[in-house]
Write a protein that binds this DNA or RNA. Structure first.
Lengths: 243, 243
DNA sequence: CGGAATGTTGATATGCCTCAACTAAAGTGG
DNA sequence: CCACTTTAGTTGAGGCATATCAACATTCCG
């Protein structure tokens, strides 16, 4: 799929894009870049001059704490704009790295600002993207602060599986989720050991199975009720649900 | 201060607003509404037709968990747009309530969309507002997930004091923070009892004192280092610091 | 003045973290 | 191709931070 198609598919999930918008988006010149597993794409403090769209693979945003520990903030799938904030904020307050191999396309701020002024619909669609991002962050606050143990992991798994489905990453009841247990811990604010034990619980209760970077949902209804998952905050059109 | 002045002061902290923009903003018609302490301004599920700017007092956003418990997500001071997401997202994924008495002015989405198309600078300034919001959410993920005990509270106090200074809420070394200990717990993902004990630690170490809805910073440097506070994520111009 | 909300304290329970050892899998170089 | 190293996952034990429960003190407000 061409970069602009990945971008358009995502925007169309929530925003009306007319043919003239499509044409304008297809005229954007973008620079492709392949990222190796774990590679930083942008670092805290950077002042990017372009904004990236994920084309293939998964990217992650993270903070680095005083101790050097990492706090992952969100995962990003194809069509996502992991550093859109750079368009309007002076510096990056967090870093963005690749989880596994990934492909991104960078579009210069200059081009984007121009298209935003000429075609406000496109600006509003990207703005909407950033607002959905914010909704996902809010949900993470609630998940990491208000839910314990298995529920926290279950909710996270639901979100990732749900989002993966939209971008065609999910086959039936499984999707890639190439995080180690350590990284899951750094995402969910738990220790590696706790993650390991809760994952075993999820396996034993036949709710979900995470192994070798792959999430298998054994029972969506179990997982969703464990994690109190309600996808409203993702503000997407709902795909077929599963039982 | 007139509503448009509150709005303009905030936008100017981070965005260039020219005289024509100012004139356009002053022409916006807005509906003032006074909120009683604790009153919900917007509720989860609502589909607002206007966006509000805080004029006086403090508002808070919160999620309601399955158990009925509340998770506060962020506080909002004069000039903030607590429900700007309503401009582009179909429904509210969280609620907004008043903390103490508050005054808000609502501007219809119709007027805002019109001004955004005519004067993109204003759209970009409000977009920037929402991106700063998102940065604050990210920091909350990190704070609530990655910091423990006193550090978590200290960081939260630093942020609130810092933001309060910008809107003229802070007198020298104190600012209003009219949250009960229960509400602090619901913000920081801790129990009331833990909050109470950590607050005592902060008092005893002469870092900060929270009493009767007022935060007194006894030693900014102690508090900031305890909470690993770096205000970069607020993306504001830095006011005078204190020792 | 009385009742409700808020704050404080102590005791106990428990979930999670840390440490540590070990297994399994994957990747590397001879 | 196999020994070696590294990384990821698993398990057990012990300790600590935080939650929970419960009583009481204090402040606020009608």
């Amino acid at each position: 799929m061409a970069p602009s198609d990945v971008l358009l598919r995502k925007l169309r999930y929530h925003s009306p894009i007319d043919p003239a918008d499509v044409a304008a988006i297809r005229r954007l010149r973008c620079e492709m870049r392949e990222l190796t597993p774990g590679e930083d794409f942008v670092s805290q403090g950077d002042k990017p001059k372009a904004a990236a769209v994920v084309i293939e693979g998964i990217l992650a945003r993270y903070h680095t704490l005083g101790s050097g520990a990492r706090q992952y903030l969100a995962l990003h799938y194809p069509g996502d704009w992991p550093d859109a904030q750079g368009l309007f904020l002076q510096h990056m307050d967090h870093s963005v790295c690749a989880i596994g191999r990934a492909l991104v396309c960078s579009i210069s701020h200059d081009q984007l600002m121009k298209i935003f002024v000429e075609r406000p619909t496109i600006a509003f669609a990207v703005w909407r993207e950033t607002l959905i991002d914010a909704a996902i962050f809010r949900e993470s606050i609630t998940n990491n602060s208000g839910r314990h143990g298995v529920a926290r992991i279950a909710h996270f798994f639901c979100e990732q599986f749900y989002r993966a489905k939209f971008v065609g990453f999910a086959e039936d009841n499984a999707c890639p989720l190439p995080l180690t247990q350590t990284e899951l811990g750094e995402t969910l604010g738990m220790s590696l050991v706790s993650i390991n034990r809760h994952l075993q619980t999820l396996r034993q209760t036949k709710a979900a199975d995470h192994r070798a970077g792959k999430l298998t949902v054994r029972s969506w209804s179990k997982l969703a009720s464990l994690g109190e998952f309600d996808p409203g905050y993702l503000h997407q059109i709902v795909p077929a649900s599963r039982g």
